[in-house]
Design a protein around this nucleic acid. Structure first.
Length: 471
DNA sequence: GTGCGAGCCA
DNA sequence: TAATGATGGA
DNA sequence: TCCATCATTATGGCTCGCAC
């Protein structure tokens, strides 16, 4: 638990009878600024993280304004002062930065059997284990680094090795502390940024009033917000964060449980639905319990995660190129909707591979309009029996990728791959389960250069127009 | 002001 | 983000 | 046979920069 600062006059029943600025020396101001910062940090913690404020909003605002005034009048503005959350100059672009350690994604499935197989593999490799279990948040993850207990930087996941430095934007998030309490010298943590459902709805109402397009769903609103170059806009959007992992820490941590305890004790916001179990059955029950609560939560989740609690055992299990081998996400079943296939089209990829894609009557699946779904190859289309005009069940696999589940109502005819390439007209050949365009380079070249030529044409027009004007 | 591609998130 | 299929190792 | 890995394909929403 974060300690209450001692000998600070602005914690409980703050004295708001401030000295006249004209009567103060710079030393006086410095002292007061330090007390105010410490107090405001603490009040932020109580308000945003513990949800248990000890002063009213008006008193808070008074303290905040006093701090801003002193900083301005005496030239005491500092980067990690609470007053610096808001505002700042817009960036030209984001800098790319390396993570202290790679940020992997989790292996996952909706299938209970897969979860049991994961458990068997774990026990085969490292013996008896307990699992730390927690919800899987549907936001986007960032690395946040604290040095000497002070906020240093925040980096998006990117390709896992390095990402964009979005520090200025992340600093506007009230649930991200700028200073930590008794923190290790070096601490790099992973957290999930999200937009609370209520904030999302309020934001959309405001946007409608202003005649702007509402956002489609909280996740994309949050992801879009963090890509804003102007932190002032970010500051007005309701973002929040949960921290859940340590990437690097100068203090030894032995288990996932200790991770949560450490994060909490230094003032980082942690979700409280996590638990510890010894049996995989308990994890499966947990998933079903959380699934029932899903709609009542203030944030979107797309499943639950089990992590081997003991960190030595994790190291023993290691990782693959994409996932740690000691963790597994048990996802919720995707929402299934019915719609009609308007038409099956065939796309040609960079390598000349032909892929059938179903164009659908648009349906809304959990805040996303689905209007097309890949059918992978001819064999799969035939196995499913998808034809133009048939009624189908669609889901979003992993709540992301549209996928045709089954045909509900067939229609006339049968799909087959065209004999000639829909892009260049060359012959099409079969290679295993796939079809390829024999136009080879000339097809893909034509495909790519079509745009290049168009671009050249347009730019030469433009060039002609400009030189005409200047002449 | 609008539209489109690139590049990002999942 | 997911699914697929080829490939290579145990 | 089982498993992991790789390359390739695919979706939708969002912001930004640039062209018009």
């Amino acid at each position: 638990m974060v300690d209450e600062p001692r000998d600070n006059p602005y914690i409980r029943d703050p004295d708001l009878d401030f000295k006249e600025i004209g009567d103060m020396s710079k030393e006086d101001a410095k002292e007061e600024v330090e007390d105010l910062r410490e107090a405001i940090e603490h009040h932020d913690y109580l308000y945003y993280i513990k949800n248990d404020p000890v002063i009213s909003d008006t008193v808070y605002d008074t303290l905040f304004n006093r701090l801003a005034t002193l900083e301005r009048e005496f030239g005491l503005v500092e980067e990690n002062s609470p007053t610096q959350r808001v505002g700042g100059e817009p960036l030209d672009s984001f800098e790319t930065r390396e993570h202290v350690r790679e940020m992997l994604s989790l292996d996952s499935s909706e299938d209970e059997e897969e979860v049991r197989r994961f458990d068997e593999r774990v026990r085969r490799e490292v013996g008896e284990v307990s699992y730390s279990i927690e919800p899987k948040f549907d936001g986007f993850s960032v690395e946040v680094v604290y040095l000497e207990g002070e906020f240093d930087r925040a980096i998006t996941r990117g390709d896992g090795m390095s990402g964009d430095d979005v520090s200025k934007n992340v600093k506007t998030i009230r649930t991200v502390p700028l200073k930590l309490n008794k923190a290790p010298e070096l601490l790099s943590v992973r957290g999930e940024i999200y937009m609370p459902k209520s904030g999302f709805h309020e934001l959309n109402e405001e946007r409608l009033k202003k005649g702007k397009e509402p956002f489609a769903n909280p996740r994309n609103a949050a992801a879009g917000t963090i890509r804003q170059l102007d932190p002032n806009i970010v500051a007005e959007r309701p973002l929040s964060i949960f921290f859940y992992d340590i990437l690097d820490c100068s203090q030894e941590v032995k288990t996932q449980r200790e991770t949560f305890e450490l994060l909490k004790s230094i003032g980082l916001r942690v979700n409280d639905l996590n638990d510890l179990v010894n049996e995989i059955d308990d994890f499966i029950d947990y998933r079903n319990e959380i699934m029932k609560m899903r709609d009542e939560l203030e944030y979107d989740i797309d499943g639950v995660v089990a992590k081997v609690n003991d960190i030595d055992k994790r190291e023993e299990m290691g990782k693959t190129a994409r996932h740690p081998r000691w963790a597994f996400a048990y996802k919720f079943p995707p929402k299934i909707s019915e719609t009609k296939v308007r038409k099956i089209i065939v796309q040609v990829g960079r390598t000349g591979k032909l892929t059938p894609v179903a164009l659908l009557d648009p349906v809304d699946i959990k805040g996303v309009t689905v209007s097309r779904a890949t059918l992978h190859n001819e064999e799969i289309v035939k196995k499913l029996g998808v034809t133009n005009g048939s009624k189908v069940k669609v889901e979003r696999a992993g709540d992301v990728i549209p996928e045709i589940e089954e045909v509900v109502e067939k229609s006339e005819g049968e799909f087959s791959m065209p004999n000639s390439c829909p892009v260049c007209g060359s012959d099409v050949v079969e290679e295993g389960k796939y079809h390829f365009c024999t136009g080879g380079i000339s097809c893909s070249v034509r495909y790519i250069f079509y745009w290049a030529i168009l671009g050249f044409f347009v730019s030469s027009l433009l060039f002609g127009k400009r030189s005409g004007k200047s002449a």
